[in-house]
């Protein structure tokens, strides 16, 4: 438990953090832009890993396997969207149903609960055996995704998705098919989540159907840590592009904190508990801050003092 071991594990943590950050970009799309807490991601993250591992070990070129993982995520998001828009199932429940369904689907795809890639045999895009190049590749991929997202949400369709998340009644009155917009956003979001899952599987050299458990919370953690930091540094100048970049930064910080904690020999089984507490704390801070600024208790005290 020396400082050297902490420093040694840091580059690997950064690589993992960037990949979680890519997943968090997908979470940002649904949670912040569409205003839809999509729990599908726990399943679609593992789907991405499963599809990629099965295809890569089957001899399919890595980029094609990653594209297929993205497509599988798109399909998963499509299903969640259809549950919600065409069948009228509430948003959270649609995600939970799809997450459960994906567990079985992922086992079918993998043909078991987990599968290794055989790292030396394939030309993987990221791998723990080559940490520094992996960080560069992961950064390039996240940069490309951020650029595409920045462009897309400036288009007429992207603006319509933002309007749908912001004010559905207004969107309908302006002729926006809000059901379609939700389905598109869910599909794109889960596509990105699955892409991230395919990278995580390559980085680790294996995949597991339980790989995505808690992904939504990790995604939220990255989104929220990024937002808090972005606001602290840039105040009101934090535009859309900066906020997207800070989602990745949030992912890196989240995983470095996790690395630090496991360096402290906190049992790994306790990490999910810790993650949940961090996210709860960050979600609660804005609310509590508002309460602190105007609370009945303070008003009562002020009123009492004046008597």
């Amino acid at each position: 438990m020396t400082l050297v071991t902490l420093l040694n594990r840091m580059p690997g943590d950064v690589a993992i953090g960037i990949i979680w950050g890519i997943m968090a970009l997908g979470v940002y799309l649904t949670f912040r832009i569409l205003n839809f807490a999509d729990l599908t991601v726990d399943g679609s993250f593992a789907t991405g890993g499963a599809v990629a591992v099965v295809l890569i070990t089957g001899g399919v070129p890595v980029p094609v396997a990653m594209a297929a993982a993205f497509a599988a995520g798109v399909l998963a998001g499509l299903c969640t969207g259809i549950f919600h828009t065409l069948l009228g199932i509430p948003d959270i429940l649609s995600g939970i149903l799809m997450q459960l369904a994906l567990y079985s689907i992922n086992v079918f795809i993998l043909g078991g609960a987990n599968k290794a890639i055989g790292v030396g045999k394939y030309n993987l895009c990221v791998s723990m055996l080559k940490v520094t190049p992996s960080i560069v590749v992961a950064l390039l991929i996240s940069g490309a995704l951020i650029a595409v997202m920045y462009w897309y949400f400036g288009t007429a369709q992207g603006s319509a998705i933002r309007a749908t998340g912001n004010n559905p009644a207004m969107s309908r009155a302006q002729g926006i098919n809000i059901g379609l917009m939700k389905v598109i956003a869910l599909a794109l979001s889960n596509g990105m989540v699955a892409l991230s899952g395919s990278m995580m599987a390559q980085l680790n050299g294996y995949t597991d159907v339980g790989m995505g458990r808690g992904a939504i919370v990790i995604g939220l953690a990255a989104v929220i840590i990024g937002e808090v930091l972005c606001h602290a540094i840039f105040r009101k100048n934090s535009g859309f592009l900066l906020r997207l970049i800070f989602v990745i930064v949030g992912g890196i910080i989240y995983y470095m904190v996790m690395g630090f904690i496991s360096w402290l020999r906190v049992p790994t089984d306790g990490l999910k508990l810790f993650t949940a507490l961090i996210v709860a704390a960050f979600l609660a801070v804005p609310y509590l801050k508002g309460k602190a600024n105007s609370s009945f208790r303070k008003a009562g005290r002020r009123g009492a003092n004046r008597e």
Binding site: Y152, F153, G154, T155, A156, Q157, G158, S159, A160, Q174, G175, I176
Partner: peptide
């Protein structure tokens, strides 16, 4: 853009 197809042209 009310009544028009909302595709990938600039939003503004």
């Amino acid at each position: 853009r009310r009544g028009k197809r909302r595709l990938w042209g600039w939003g503004i």
